[in-house]
Amino acid sequence: MRASIDEVMHRHMAVTIFFGLGTGVIFAFLPTFAESLGVHTLALFYTGYAGAAMAVRIFGGRLIDTQGRHAVIVPSMFVQAAATALLASVGLHALGPGAAPLPVLPLLVVAGVMAGGSHGFLYPGLAALVTDETPAARRGSVVGLFSAVFLVGNAGGAFVFGFVTHAIGYGYMWAILTALMLAGAGVSLRLTPAPSVDDSTDDVDAEYTDAQARVRRIAVNSKEPS
């Protein structure tokens, strides 16, 4: 139990909470938010979200290994914040009296692509970071704990922001969420960058080359006449 508490106190778990919070609020409140703006189906939003999440994992998933976890997690946190900022802009614009109509559905689709793309990088990137920093004997339990922390963010966001939305409306709710997402992105800036796999491989190759060179020198010296 104490070991699990210690794991939760790590900075990458705090980033996971923020990530889960943003994802949970988007999925919980976007349908009713869109309905309030006259959009009656979100098929394109969910298609954009899922398509972006799959695309970045298929075509960009290697970046998590080659560039390092930190290099992928930090930009993705800011992209998630940008997605909620776009939703906040749409919601706040709708509050203005006599405001010119916006192309709401295309903007929601753009927000979905941004949120989905960030999700596609963040979940495997954070899971890999958790694995990197956990002893092999405890990796299974700690990855399970990581998943639980993400779901706590999901559920907590949906619960708390229901009261927030009821009290102040969608526009200000998305604005508050954006501020929290930026705070989470700020926390991600303080994650310790882990060496990429390619860097580690280069180090191993360099050591191997040095060892070969030493063996050659020994062989040459042994052949020289005394």
Rank of each mutant, 00 (worst) to 15 (best):
A3W: 14
D6Y: 07
V8F: 08
M9Y: 01
M9F: 10
H10C: 08
R11L: 15
M13V: 06
F18Q: 01
F19H: 09
T23Y: 09
G24C: 07
P31I: 04
P31W: 07
T32D: 13
T32S: 15
F33K: 00
S36M: 05
G38P: 03
L44F: 13
G51H: 07
M54A: 15
R57K: 09
F59V: 11
L63V: 05
L63I: 02
T66Q: 10
T66F: 04
T66Y: 06
T66I: 10
Q67H: 12
R69D: 06
H70D: 05
A71D: 09
V74K: 03
P75F: 06
A83C: 11
A85G: 06
A85L: 12
L87G: 01
S89N: 05
S89L: 14
V90N: 01
G91R: 00
G96I: 12
A99C: 09
A100I: 06
L102K: 06
P106R: 10
L108Y: 05
V110T: 08
M114P: 00
A115K: 00
G117H: 03
H119G: 00
L126Q: 04
A127C: 07
D132V: 08
P135R: 09
A136Q: 13
V142F: 00
V143L: 14
S147A: 15
A148G: 09
V149D: 01
G153N: 02
G162I: 04
G169Y: 01
I176S: 01
M181V: 02
A185K: 05
G186Y: 01
L191H: 04
P193H: 06
P193I: 06
D199W: 11
T201P: 00
D202T: 11
D202Y: 10
E207Q: 13
V215T: 12
R216D: 15
R216W: 12
R216A: 11
V220F: 12
P225M: 10
